[in-house]
Computed example of a mutant assay.
Amino acid sequence: MKQTLIFNIVLTVSLLVNCLYAQEHVPMDVKATRETVELYKSLMSIQSKRKVILGQQDALCYGRYWKDEPDRSDIKDVTGSHPALLGLDFQPLTHVEKPYRESETKRLVDQVKEMYQRGGIITFSWHMSNPVNGGTYEWKNNPQLAVKEILPGGKSNGVYQSYLYKIGDFLAQCKGAKGEPIPIIFRPFHEFDGDWFWWGKGHASTEEFVQLWRYTVSFLKDNLGIHHVLYAFSPDCKFQTSSDYLAQYPGDDYVDILGMDNYWDFRPDGANDPAAASLKMGIVSCIAQQKGKIAALTETGLEGITDPKWFTMVLQPMLTKWPLAYCMLWRNSVDIQTHYYVPTEDHPAAEDFKKFCRKDHIILLNDLKLTYNSELK
């Protein structure tokens, strides 16, 4: 209770200060494109108004019972609108099989352009193949140390640079109708405080992780001239304090968005702790306010939606308590029966989800009024 009170006091002071200096809120990249600056300012404005953009991973790519159908998403099936933010992943760009890599890269470019033309926002994570041996991103299936080896001077730095060149080439293809680079939110090395990815806890020192983050951002920005990216820092929910959260923070000059991935506090086995989730979101939001950054719930959801009132009774209270710009629900798998995070029309949680999405503070694509896309002005 005392911790929550302190957070509320700090948050109030931070909000007042940020209101005074709102005109100074810009991306950390001083060469950011006009559209990227406008996107950043729009997200900051939405956050300050206590509204939340709702997104979903792979939402327009497939759903529980369909795949590759034009203008469809499970969220639209239920609510009448697509999500305002689309989550995608850079994983195919470095896949070992060339035909798959080329076809999936083209598909991703098309999806980015389509979402941008609709007026939505795009965010990318990166389930990266291990550059040392080309193996999977999961540590349990490929326990190969890599972070130290892909830094400058490491034996696999050249391979990692080739990965970054592929991302640079991809981003260069993502252009709007007037040739403008489409702004992208990039969330590298997500959930790094867990041990399930090769870049995660126990597989690199704090110094190595921070160096890798800075090297990645600097290479894309300074070496490849990519200036239409906002960078999101998103650990899992292992932290308990601000110090925990910032333990591997690479610095304000390398981050635009402060986030959190949280599934552990919303487990389908019933061992949920919404109060803990809210407290952690408060930590993220307060730090973001203090630093003049954007806050977000970068991944979340209740797998299988075992609680039919979860959206209004669990998620909604947290989203209204703390200022944050967006919340992204995880994907609805087309081939894993229990792996879904948004209800379909026949699901017991469908009515609750509709009610949740009708709240004034929730922004779907039909409600999104951004200025960053010059095509829509």
Rank of each mutant, 00 (worst) to 15 (best):
P27C: 13
T4C: 09
N223T: 15
A271M: 12
H228P: 05
S14L: 14
K76V: 07
L85E: 05
T298Y: 07
V334N: 14
E180L: 11
P27A: 12
A177Y: 08
V342F: 05
Q211T: 15
V132D: 03
W322C: 03
A277P: 01
T79S: 03
V334H: 12
V132T: 08
R50E: 04
N18D: 13
I283Q: 02
M318E: 00
E208Q: 15
M313S: 05
S81N: 03
G202K: 01
V314H: 00
I283N: 02
S42M: 08
C174I: 11
N272Q: 15
C174A: 10
E207M: 11
G301T: 00
G292R: 04
Q117M: 11
T105H: 10
T241R: 05
A296S: 11
P323K: 07
L212N: 06
D77C: 12
Y62S: 02
Y40G: 03
T79A: 05
G259P: 01
P348G: 05
S205V: 05
Y215D: 03
T306D: 01
S374D: 06
R118W: 09
L246N: 03
L20I: 03
L39G: 03
A146M: 09
L88N: 10
W199N: 00
W139H: 09
E69V: 10
L85P: 10
D68V: 01
D195F: 10
L54T: 01
S103V: 09
T300L: 01
F219T: 15
Q289I: 01
K293M: 08
P268T: 08
K166R: 15
D110F: 08
I6N: 13
S374I: 15
A350Q: 02
R358V: 00
T105V: 08
T312W: 03
P323C: 12
K155C: 08
H190I: 13
H95R: 09
P99G: 02
G154E: 09
K321N: 12
A232P: 07
V10N: 13
L370Y: 05
R187N: 08
S125I: 15
E375K: 07
I75F: 00
N142C: 12
K175R: 15
Y40S: 03
F197P: 06
K369R: 11
S162E: 14
S278D: 05
E180T: 14
H25R: 15
Q248D: 10
